[in-house]
């Protein structure tokens, strides 16, 4: 059904060649930038500058008092020092265990809770609210509460274990190289599984009811319905949730920082706490910055997926 009227052809071809360049377009939209400007300034000052600074610090030896004029060029020394240090491997392994285990169990518990709460029943709202409180209260509060629960002499968990006959005397959860990391992971899961739950509950609402009915009529068992209908619909949300959890876990510091300070003997150090200790504990600014830059690169890789997952469909919307 193509159509061309007589007068149309010439102006179209004559004008279409002219494409406005970026600068004239920016000039045409200049007032639009005013709206974003305050946000940009804040972000620039507190983000762009620090990123630049971290990179710079990582190539220098800076005195403990952080007097920048006394810093000395060190090349890649800080990086080689970090990568060859004896704790690097243990801390990295801890970080991986911490991140993966926290993410995995939080997600699984959250998904389970979401599925159990998906059916309408009296008190569902109350259940959801109660489950979310650990996520809302600060990690500091969680750390103190769990530190008390884990207490080596008067901790309720140790006492329970004895009463139920699991052990003969209370376990010293936090002061034991074998148990400390898993104990901290439990706290972390306690705090954030309900985030996964809320996300998955929202995701479950997008599963078309008709499809589930159709599957039921077609003779699918509950498991089949979950696996073939529900789960594929949750893929997108699951991805975002897992990514967000990973990022949060990778970046979390408070729980190990307050509960154990990385101890005993570095057994619960993860990258973040280790960097903090290098910087503010031992004043090894250069090494800490080098660590941060490495972490940065890892995060950029994760960030690529994060932004991609988060902005699905956004660009489809047009004027």
């Amino acid at each position: 059904m193509s159509i061309a009227t007589g007068r149309a052809a010439s102006p179209l071809s004559a004008r279409s060649a002219k494409k406005p360049n970026v600068f004239s377009r920016m000039a045409a939209h200049r007032t639009d930038y005013l709206y974003v400007l305050p946000a940009l300034i804040v972000m620039m000052v507190v983000i762009a500058y620090p990123i630049y600074y971290t990179i710079e610090l990582s190539f220098y030896r800076t005195p403990p008092n952080l007097q920048l004029r006394d810093k000395v060029w060190a090349g890649f020394d800080n990086y080689t020092a970090v990568l060859s240090s004896s704790v690097f491997h243990e801390v990295t392994l801890n970080t991986v265990i911490w991140t993966v285990a926290s993410t995995f169990f939080s997600f699984v518990l959250g998904l389970g809770a979401a599925l159990s709460l998906h059916r309408e029943f009296i008190g569902r709202g109350l259940f959801r609210a109660l489950l979310m409180i650990p996520y809302v209260v600060s990690a500091v509060a969680a750390s103190y509460v769990w530190k008390w629960l884990y207490h080596s002499d008067f901790g309720v968990i140790g006492a329970l274990a004895v009463q139920l006959g699991f052990t003969s005397e209370p376990i010293n959860f936090l002061d034991n190289r074998q148990t400390v990391l898993s104990s901290l992971i439990v706290v972390n899961i306690w705090r954030e599984f309900s985030f996964a739950m809320v996300m998955m509950m929202a995701g479950l609402q997008t599963v078309p009811e008709q499809l589930l009915r159709a599957a039921q009529v077609d003779g699918a068992t509950p498991w089949n319905r979950f696996w073939h209908v529900t789960f594929p619909h949750l893929k997108g949300v699951s991805m975002v949730t897992v990514l967000l959890l990973m990022v949060a876990n990778f970046n979390s510091i408070i729980i190990p920082f307050i509960m154990t300070g990385g101890g005993p003997a570095d057994a619960s150090h993860i990258w973040i706490t280790h960097i903090y200790q290098l910087a503010f504990g031992r004043q090894q600014w250069g090494a800490a910055a080098a660590y941060a830059v490495i972490l940065f690169i890892v995060m950029m890789a994760l960030g690529y997926f994060y932004v991609k997952a988060l902005t699905r469909g956004d660009e489809a919307r047009q004027e």
Binding site: R7, A8, P11, L12, R15, S16, A17, K19, P20
Partner: peptide
């Protein structure tokens, strides 16, 4: 009247 988006003409003369 003309309204164009780049080389795309929504309203053409």
């Amino acid at each position: 009247i003309v309204k164009s988006y780049g080389s795309l003409y929504a309203v053409n003369h």
